[in-house]
Amino acid sequence: MRKFKSLKSSLSIASLLAALAAPAAAEDVSIDVGTDKPIVVQKGALKRIALFIEMGTNTAVQSTVTGAQEAAALHSITVDVFDARFDIGRQVNQMQNALIGGYDAWIVAAIEGEQVCNMAASEAPKAGIPVAVVTMAICGRSINEGEAMWSPGTLTYIGGNESPNSFERVMQQAVIDHPGPQKIAVLTGQPLHPITLAFDKALKKFLAENPQVTLAATHRTDYSPEMNQQKVQTTLQATPDLDAIIGVYTNMSKGAVPALEAAGLQGKIRLYEAGGTVWSVDALKSGAIAATTGYYRGTAAETAVEMLVKAFNGEPVPRAVMNDGHALIPGQSPGQVGIVTVANVDQYVPQSP
């Protein structure tokens, strides 16, 4: 009997030691994406992120890639970049392929918010993939503000500096600088691009509130400086008494400046933009442009990675993070885009060339 008890005791100790030596079972974490069914993942299991971008040669988009990769490297996470080359069909196909590509999470910078909506806000969460949306809101929400820019089915939205209120603030600067009657021309991207929709909503409101402003021309472009230069040249010929040009991004200014120089009108026609690049800072200091806006695609991508890491660790994540997740600059109020002029340009640090 003693030998039996001794053997039984030895087996119990051996079992206990084996249990202690065995790897702990992975802990499940539920991620709330605003739908009836949360996404369930293994805690801390974020290892691979698919990053969907619009155009890899665009300087602002390059900031998105750099920001995501640098933030991911801090957590030993791999980021695979899917460049859609401004082809919405390509972007949707890339997402379809990524569903079975073994990715733990997505970061989406959409070309066109409606057409990626089903993949990012429905199919991805069904497949257990949390999605962080940066810069361009999806599912028709680019014309909203604040938390309303977040789409149910996705984890979070990071951006806000390309919302209608942000673009309207740029337009208002033209009236602040020149309160009287004036003629303006505007330069945007493709008609269905989320940023264009936000800009158009802002423009409609701005013109209604400022009847002294006359819209002389609206041009849709492919964001290339070359096309924008051509459009401005055409506008100058048709409207020689133009007072100001307002562009949706720095690339519009890069095309407008040489057109104004060639016509001998630089300094006579004021130029406003969103985008806040390195080029913009130099242009402000030289007087080539009158104002730009704080724009932080690198920070937005970094924040997206951090939000995904938090979600995989079981921590709460806000539905939306405004100002691209960046700190405010002098003169900027919470919830508003930061206007950069010659007065505060030295306090602004651009993230795109």
Rank of each mutant, 00 (worst) to 15 (best):
Ile100Asp: 12
Ala137Pro: 11
Pro258Gln: 00
Val79Lys: 06
Glu123Pro: 00
His75Ser: 09
Ser352Tyr: 05
Ser9Glu: 14
Ser12Phe: 09
Pro258Thr: 00
His219Lys: 11
Arg85Glu: 14
Gln266Arg: 11
Val92Tyr: 01
Phe206Trp: 09
Ala18Ile: 12
Pro225Phe: 01
Gln173Pro: 02
Leu7Thr: 12
Arg319Met: 14
Asn344Leu: 10
Val340Pro: 08
Pro191Leu: 08
Val92Phe: 02
Gly276Cys: 07
Thr341Asn: 03
Thr341His: 10
Ala311Pro: 07
Ala22Ser: 15
Met95Ser: 01
Leu16Asn: 08
Ala24Met: 12
Gly153Leu: 11
Thr66Arg: 14
Ala84Ile: 05
Ile129Val: 15
Ser163Met: 10
Gln190Ala: 15
Ser253Leu: 02
Val278Cys: 04
Ala198Pro: 12
Asp83Ser: 02
Thr239Pro: 03
Ala320Trp: 06
His193Cys: 00
Met149Asp: 08
Ala105Arg: 07
Val248Asn: 07
Pro38Asp: 05
His75Gln: 13
Tyr249His: 13
Thr154Glu: 10
Trp150Tyr: 11
Thr221Ser: 14
Val342Pro: 01
Asn144Leu: 11
Ser15Leu: 15
Ser333Asp: 10
Ala290Met: 10
Gly276Pro: 09
Ala263Asn: 06
Leu328His: 08
Leu74Cys: 00
Gly160Tyr: 06
Ile31Phe: 06
Leu203Gly: 04
Leu207Ala: 05
Gly314Pro: 08
Thr66His: 06
Thr214Asp: 14
Thr299Gly: 09
Leu215Val: 05
Leu74Val: 13
Glu145Lys: 10
Tyr249Asn: 13
Ile77Asp: 08
Gln96Lys: 13
Leu308Ile: 12
Glu261Phe: 00
Met322Lys: 00
Trp150Pro: 03
Ile49Cys: 00
His326Tyr: 12
Thr234Arg: 08
Asn210Lys: 05
Arg2Phe: 13
Ala25Pro: 03
Asn165Leu: 10
Val342Arg: 15
Val349Arg: 13
Ile77Tyr: 04
Thr57Phe: 09
Ala259Asp: 04
Tyr296Asn: 05
Val133Trp: 00
Ile88Tyr: 02
Ser12Thr: 13
Phe206Gln: 07
Thr234Met: 08
Ser30Trp: 03
Ser151Leu: 04
Val345Ile: 13
Val40Asn: 06
Met149Gln: 15
Gly67Phe: 14
Asn165Tyr: 01
Ala45Leu: 05
Thr57Gln: 12
Lys37Leu: 09
Phe4Arg: 15
Ser6Ala: 14
His193Leu: 05
Met119Val: 02
Ser15Thr: 14
Ile13Ser: 12
Ala109Gly: 10
Asn97Ile: 06
Val340Ala: 02
Ala121Trp: 02
Thr277Asp: 10
Asp32Glu: 11
Lys5Met: 14
Val133Asn: 02
Ile158Thr: 12
Pro38Tyr: 05
Asp177Gln: 13
